[in-house]
Structure formats: C-alpha cells, structure tokens
Design a binder for these strands. Structure first.
Lengths: 197, 197
DNA sequence: CCGACTGTAAACCGATCGGTTTCCTCTGTC
DNA sequence: GACAGAGGAAACCGATCGGTTTACAGTCGG
C-alpha cells in the first residue's frame, strides 16, 4: 500500500507535500538543521525524487516547514482574537500555554528561536520566516499592553517577549522546569507596568 | 616564521593548544558546531596533525573551548566576589554587562545557551560543560537574592536567569537591541521580590 | 489493451568532512 | 655535523551528505 493513503478507495489522507512538511517540522526541531535529507524522506514516506521536485533544496524545505507550522503554533499559544477576559488574562494565557508545552516530554524550546540560533545566519530564508513569527508575537503583546493601558506598552511587550524566550530556552535546555515561573514572572511585570484590572 | 611565535628568539607567545582553544571558541560561536575542523586549524595556525594529538575529537575540542572560555566569561559578567555595593547593585551589574556585550557588533547570544540549543543533545560533553556554567550563574543570583532578603530567593534567581537568557537570545537573533531593557526588567523583578535597599 | 504520467526505490555522483598518515623541514642537543 | 624529536603541509581514506538520474511499478484516460 502506498504510504499516505488512508484506505483503499479514498483519496490520499495527506499529500506528499504535507507529510514532508510535517516530518521536516518535527525532525528539524528534534535534531536541528543538520538532519540528513534521507531521514526526512524516510520518515515522510516520500522519495527523494519527489522531495526535490516539491522543494528546491533542503533549506527551502526547512523554511517552508517553519512557515507551515506557524498558523498552528500561533493558534495554540495566542488566545482567540475576541476572547472574553481582559488583556491581562489574554497576555497571561500565552505563558500558561508555554508552561504547558514546556512540561511535555521532548520539549526543546521555541522552534523559531531554536532555528535562528542553530542557523546563525539572519539572511537564511528560514531565519527570515522565524523572525516574522517572533515579530507577530511581539505585536500581540504590544497591542494587548496598549489596550490594558500600560504605562509604556512597548516596554512591557518587549519584557514579556524576553520572558517568553528566556523561559522557553531554559526549559528547552533543561536548565529549569518552569512550573509556574513564566506565568508568575509575566504577572509581576504586568503589575509593574501599572495594569491593575 | 612559525605562527604563534611573537618574535624570533622569544618563546612562543601562545601555545598551539591555546591558539586552538581561542579559534575554536570564536568560530564555534560565530558559525556553530558545524564549522569544519580545517577552518579551525587554519585560523589557529595549527596543523590537523597537532590538533588531533592535542584533542581526541572535534567534539572534545568544542567542549574544551567552552571550558576554557568559562573563567573569562564569568569574570566579565559577574562582579568581583566582594565588590562594595549591596546585592541589588551586584545583580544589576550582570545585566549591565550583558547589555554592553549585546550592543557590540557580532553578538550572537550567550555562547553556552547557543551551544546547548545548537547541539540539541544534553548528553553531549559540550552540553554538560555549558550546563555547568549556566548553573553557576543561577547560583550567583540565588546567593545574592538570599543576601538581599528576597521573599523567595530561589524564585527571584530563576526569574533573573530567565531574563538573562531571554535578553541574550533576543539580542543574539536580532529581535531586540535591548538598550536598557534587561536592566529595567531585572530591576522590576528585584523590586517585586521585596528588595528595597 | 495502450501509452502517458506519477511517484517510489535505489543506484549514482561529486563534494565535503572527520580523522589518519606520510613526508619533510626546522629546532635544539651532543 | 649527526641525530632525535616536534610540528607543519598536504595527501589520503572512508563515510556521509545534498542532489540527480535511472529503472520500474501502479494508475488513469482512451
């Protein structure tokens, strides 16, 4: 049976392209950009031939997999656009999701920060994609901070971004197991920014 | 003239071992662990033959270079053991040094966090060395927090470590240029921990 | 039943890399 | 000056990797 088919007679459960993107996202995350293309193809159940006619190069696949991952990641860490509670709760929601993810086994930090750190080249296509995602997160914090009436919304947003990346990094390298640390820290900074609600 | 000699007739200015460790520290930092051994040897002015009789493997050289770097790094970021001002100023001193380093061109984040992130393998010898250095920093924060009479010294120490790594990471990937952000954030957390002095 | 097409499996290619070895030059010693 | 040792330059080796190509199996429209 051809891999990727759910059952005989049905259409492909997932396209070769999606399987490749998923496998790439996971393996690049777990093993870093050094993972051989053969491994990616084997896990995805796709031949190298197909991979190279779907993507120009390994680097292009890496960038595409980060791009592909973005909607799911932001959706899982950012609250829905018009969620009930106020901006304070919406900001803290992000850190609750982070703690949740960091607690699960196999957590290795933020995939986008990790990619940028591992690549060490801001001009790399994948780095550009990662930077855009990280930027979106900063924008979210800034918008909420402004809505909440923070003394300096831009400062608070950057502070929260620092806490997010610091907590993710330290959890990812096993230097801390968080356990409320990110939420508590973000909360303290939000308080210090003059937000009471 | 043989590289590494300061002038004819004098003894070697630096040993081949030290030149190798310095070159490794810089190139691993700038290019990541993927840097070829030939490049390391060329920059160090040492033959591969000598390198491999000084170090067992490339990985061993990486670990040794991180170990070699540790005293200088901690000395440059931690205040002298019995510096005049109180614990609050001593903690903030670390973040001032961080901002200073992050402002210089070519800054790519904390070398130890970067190594652990890039290697993605906590059991790697270099990761173990890096973890030890990061741990030393956490211990410094905890000791100072306790001296300062923080409500929860362990919590404050972990918070400051998070801010340190977050600020270093974000500055390293070009997501933020700090400019007081680390100091201001650390200061806010220290205040929130009930330290007035 | 046929030919065009799609995609897999696998051989293949050239380059690169970690690590070893060979050769030779330079140095210091007696 | 002979000689031993250290170390640099560079060839070399086997493995791996990114990427290409060939060969073949399955599928679909006619």
């Amino acid at each position: 049976m051809t891999p990727g088919k759910a059952a005989p007679g049905t259409r492909a459960a997932t396209s070769a392209r999606d399987r490749l993107l998923d496998a790439a996202a996971e393996l690049f995350y777990r093993e870093g950009p050094g993972i051989p293309t053969d491994d990616l193809c084997r896990v995805a159940g796709v031949s190298k031939r197909s991979m190279y006619q779907l993507f120009d190069s390994k680097d292009a696949l890496l960038a595409a997999s980060l791009e592909h991952l973005a909607p799911a990641v932001t959706a899982s860490v950012l609250p829905a656009p018009d969620t009930g509670p106020g901006p304070r709760a919406r900001m803290l929601y992000v850190f609750e999701r982070l703690e949740e993810a960091a607690g699960s086994p196999g957590y290795l930090g933020c995939p986008y920060a990790a990619a940028q750190v591992a690549l060490r080249d801001p001009s790399h296509t994948a780095s550009v994609v990662a930077a855009r995602v990280k930027r979106r997160m900063l924008d979210f914090f800034r918008a909420e901070a402004a809505r909440a009436g923070a003394t300096d919304p831009d400062l608070l947003a950057r502070q929260l971004a620092v806490v997010y990346d610091g907590a993710a990094t330290r959890a990812g390298i096993g230097a801390d197991d968080l356990g409320g640390l990110a939420v508590v820290t973000a909360s303290a900074l939000i308080d210090a920014a003059g937000i009471t609600e």
